[in-house]
C-alpha cells in the first residue's frame, strides 16, 4: 500500500468522525507583523495533531487563538461546535472544554498541587470540593505523582510541575488538549516522563494538538503532522508521509536542518 493510499484511508476514516476544531481563513496581526496568514484546518475527534515549524512561524499563536488567549482578527474558529466570537458565554464554554499546557508550566505558586488542580473544577465546573479532590488525586495517580499532592509547585522538579499542569488541565475533563511546547523548558532527563504521560493520554483517545520539537513523539503518536512557516500552513500529512517524503521544498529544508 502506497503512502497516498494510507493517506486516503486515514482521510476516509477521519471524515466519519466529528469535527473538534475548525479554522477557516484565520488571520492575525501583531502590529504590522502578520502572525497567522489564512490558516484553514479541521481537526477531528480523537485525532492527535502535531504542529511543527521554525520558531516565529505562528504555531504557538495559532493554538493560543483556539482557546482565545489571543483573539484572531479575521476568519472563523469553531471549537466543538461553538464559534469563538466576542460572546462571553461561548468563550467560557470553550475554555472549559479545552485544556491547555504551557511551556513554562504556569502553575499557581501560592497554591498546593491539590489546590492547583481542584481550583477550576470547584469554581468553574461547580463541583463539590470532596468530589474535586477525589478526581484530583486520581489524576495525580494517572500522571504518576500521587505523593506530591500537598506540596507547593516550587518544591517540585520541572518534569513533575509539567505533569501537575497536565493534571490541572485534565481536571476540567476537557474534550481537547492543547500543548504549547510542553517539553521545551525541561531538562533533558525529564522530557521522557512528560512525553510518557502525553502518549498515554493520546492512547486514551483524547483530541490533542501539540506544538513541539520532539520529532520522536510526532512520529510515534501523531495521526497527522502540520508544518507551518511564516504564519501559513505549508504542508499537512501523516507522519510517514511527512518525515519520509515531504512534498514541499520548505518542509524538506526544515527537516534537513532539524534531523
Amino acid at each position: 500500500m502506497s503512502v497516498s493510499d494510507a493517506t486516503t484511508a486515514l482521510t476516509e476514516e477521519l471524515a466519519a468522525r466529528d469535527d473538534m476544531i475548525v479554522c477557516e481563513g484565520v488571520n492575525k496581526w501583531f502590529g504590522d507583523f502578520q502572525a497567522l496568514d489564512g490558516i484553514t484546518a479541521v481537526i477531528k475527534e480523537r485525532e492527535v495533531v502535531v504542529v511543527l515549524g521554525p520558531s516565529g512561524s505562528g504555531k504557538s499563536t495559532w493554538i493560543r487563538c483556539i482557546n482565545r488567549l489571543e483573539a484572531h482578527q479575521e476568519g472563523r474558529i469553531v471549537v466543538d461546535g461553538v464559534e469563538l466570537t466576542n460572546d462571553v458565554r461561548n468563550i467560557e464554554r470553550i475554555r472549559s472544554e479545552v485544556g491547555m499546557v504551557f511551556q513554562q508550566f504556569n502553575l499557581f505558586p501560592h497554591l498546593t498541587v491539590l489546590d492547583n488542580i481542584t481550583l477550576a473544577p470547584i469554581w468553574v465546573r461547580k463541583r463539590p470540593r470532596d468530589e474535586a479532590e477525589e478526581l484530583a488525586r486520581a489524576l495525580l495517580e494517572r500522571v504518576g505523582i500521587p505523593e506530591q499532592a500537598e506540596k507547593y509547585p516550587g518544591q517540585l522538579s520541572g518534569g513533575q510541575q509539567q505533569r501537575v499542569a497536565i493534571a490541572r488541565a485534565l481536571a476540567m475533563e476537557p474534550r481537547i488538549m492543547l500543548f504549547d511546547e510542553p517539553t521545551s523548558a525541561l531538562d533533558p532527563e525529564m522530557i521522557s516522563e512528560v512525553l510518557d504521560v502525553m502518549k498515554e493520554l493520546a492512547r486514551s483517545g483524547m483530541t490533542m494538538m501539540v506544538v513541539t520539537h520532539e520529532m520522536g513523539f510526532a512520529r510515534e503518536v501523531a495521526d497527522r503532522v502540520i508544518f507551518m512557516e511564516d504564519g501559513q500552513i505549508v504542508e499537512t500529512g501523516t507522519p510517514e508521509h511527512f518525515f519520509t517524503n515531504p512534498s514541499e521544498e520548505r518542509t524538506k529544508l526544515f527537516l534537513s536542518q532539524i534531523l
Binding site: N106, L119, V124
Partner: peptide
C-alpha cells in the same frame, strides 16, 4: 503573564482570576 494565561485557560472568570490568583500573589 503566564499566571493570567493559565487562569484563563482553565476557564476562571476575570473576577475569579483576580481574587484567587492575581491578588494573593
Amino acid at each position: 503573564r503566564g499566571q493570567y494565561e493559565a487562569s484563563d485557560a482553565v476557564g476562571l472568570t476575570t473576577v475569579q482570576r483576580t481574587l484567587f490568583i492575581v491578588l494573593p500573589q
